[in-house]
Design a protein around this nucleic acid. Structure first.
Lengths: 210, 210, 210, 210
DNA sequence: GATGAATGAGCCTTCATTCAT
DNA sequence: CATGAATGAAGGCTCATTCAT
């Protein structure tokens, strides 16, 4: 007559968020379904009402993580117009989003890479999903570069390398973040990134930029 | 009085090598000791004659991997004197050592990072080991830079940034390699790395370099 | 909201009882959890829903055994008032509770002793538990003796030895039971015990008892 | 031409002795063949030159234990003539042979009982061996009693009960020793045994003994 | 819809025994 | 004769998944 209406999507989201917390602490393999259920404050069986397998839960957690990351990320870039400043802001946003004491983001990055690389990894046969995760950021960086060129701030020659520059920048950011996390940050991350960005901007700026 | 004589060290090494193959395919958690034994072509019990635990086997595999990497690496740099060329060679060595079809190295990198980052990871409480693994490469890059400065090829100002430049370079290389592996190399890795190195060298070279 | 309701305590008890049967047949070490599960008619995994380890199962089985023993034991002594008769009844109860064809009690005694004595035994570091198991019986015997003294049936001098007499009696009973079990009862157990009790009672009875 | 002559029996004995030490510390199941070999200071393979199985080693250890026990035992009784004193000496010999700090004897007793009682126990299908182990002591006690009777120190009626008295005495001694070991001797063992013996002797002595 | 009791495949590890030397 | 390297069966235990309620 009056069935309890539950927003299935909301609950899925809640579970995915809980799973994200769990997975980013101990990784996919070491996180048990029981733990996820406990963190999500639902019964173990309930998980299987919303997801078919543990792997599905992981996928949802990854999506959850990406969404949150994007949201936080864009809010950092809002209102910045100058392309050079925008590049710097983008890089620093990456950096600042990694809390050295709770480096959930970095851990999830590694876990995602892991699961995508390894045979038998949860994402191994889903290159599409992985490709998609990365495409967004690349487009964004390219856009900034093209904008700078059209504004005359970056040399026209830069146009020939936008793809390379974007991929390199994102690769660098991921790599330096990993190093920071792995070494428990025994170097000044912000400083290093700023140095990289300065060099980059300098190399693509026209002579008038000096 | 006359027991079977076996070179225990050689056998350890052989097992470690086999374990390396196994671990780099499926990761630590997903690789069972049974599989390791099968790859090493020994009985399951034999593993425990040479190692106390699965974690110990992993450690040995990591060491094995590092050793091999260093060996191959140094052989690439032999006989190169020009600092700029040396930097380029170093970067390309990194790149070329990652076989896109069997990217063992990248996978082990990720696995090692993983085990070092994650709570309960095999390397979690061994930051010393991890730090050590990374220190060698950094020193090497710094040495090349200083050499270039003393030879007047790199600007004296570069001296103030050798640490940063080295860390950034290595971070970049790891990051871009990961991207290459994860995306199954849908960009031209060598080209991207060459571009990065050119930009770097250009930015630290004196005006006469132009 | 509406999960399967199971009386967890009842199930624990049921498993403990099954474990008791298994352990008393083959001992702690030689009984596998698989066997316990089979006897309890549950899955292997289910055991671990109710107990943390095999050792915990053993402990529960021991408690189960003690409880049952006490219950059967007290029912034998009910309604007997005469102290001498009570001593005799107590001894015979011990005896009769050991079925020569299924001498579970004696076997569990030995197993408990074993696990308590041996380095690495499950009960080795729980002297408290063992002490407690034994204290009850001793108190009971002492009470009977004191009762007999106050009724003038046992000599006042007996009072000085109640502790010794009780410990000796219980030691004797355990020892003679073990012999009976070990030798598969090739002597008349009841007769021997009766003889011992008669001698004991005679030695502590006043001259008027003659 | 000149083969090394090794006294196989001596080596067997040496191994059995080492095994005895090992078994009496941790019991049959928990003692590994490797440990026995280590204690015996021989190679693991060597054990199998002298024994067919671990069970055989245990048997030899048991025999070794019994032999030593008897030897020590008889040396205590030498030169005592008075039957009553002899009984007392015999009982105290039992007691004194159990070192409270290294209660090897008691542990071996339990282990032997264990292995004889339990299904699958090493001695389970060897009742003959067990029977034999016990027969010697019983005969000895009976002999003392008969001697006392013929000397007029024990009542003629005692003759009807020599078997019972002997079995009871030995049962008592085993039982009280076990209690002493299990409770880590929290009662005065010698005192209790002396009390038992006094009562026994008193009950079988003629009126003139008073 | 929600739950947690139940399960067995599969994990890492130990160990008695064999056998080449 | 003496050895220890090699082994696989078997052990205790975990955990993703199912299912009755």
């Amino acid at each position: 007559m009056c069935p309890v209406v539950v927003d299935r999507n909301a609950k899925r989201e809640q579970i995915a968020q809980a799973a994200l917390n769990a997975f980013s602490k101990k990784g996919y393999a070491a996180t048990s379904v029981r733990e996820i259920a406990a963190v999500a404050r639902v019964g173990k069986g309930t998980l299987y009402e919303y997801f078919r397998t543990k792997a599905d839960i992981f996928l949802a957690a990854v999506k959850c993580w990406l969404d949150q990351f994007e949201t936080r990320f864009f809010s950092r870039l809002e209102g910045i117009d100058d392309p050079a400043q925008k590049l710097a802001a983008l890089a620093l946003a990456f950096v600042e989003l990694v809390d050295p004491l709770d480096p959930m983001d970095a851990r999830m990055s590694v876990e995602v890479i892991q699961q995508g690389i390894l045979e038998g990894g949860v994402l191994f046969h889903r290159p599409h999903e992985i490709r998609e995760m990365m495409a967004g950021s690349q487009k964004m960086v390219e856009q900034i570069l093209l904008d700078g060129i059209s504004k005359g701030m970056f040399t026209p020659e830069t146009a020939r390398h936008v793809g390379k520059i974007a991929v390199n920048l994102l690769g660098y950011l991921d790599g330096i973040l990993l190093h920071a996390v792995v070494t428990k940050r025994d170097f000044d991350l912000e400083d290093h990134v700023a140095f990289y960005i300065n060099t980059l901007i300098h190399s693509i700026s026209g002579p008038s930029a000096g």
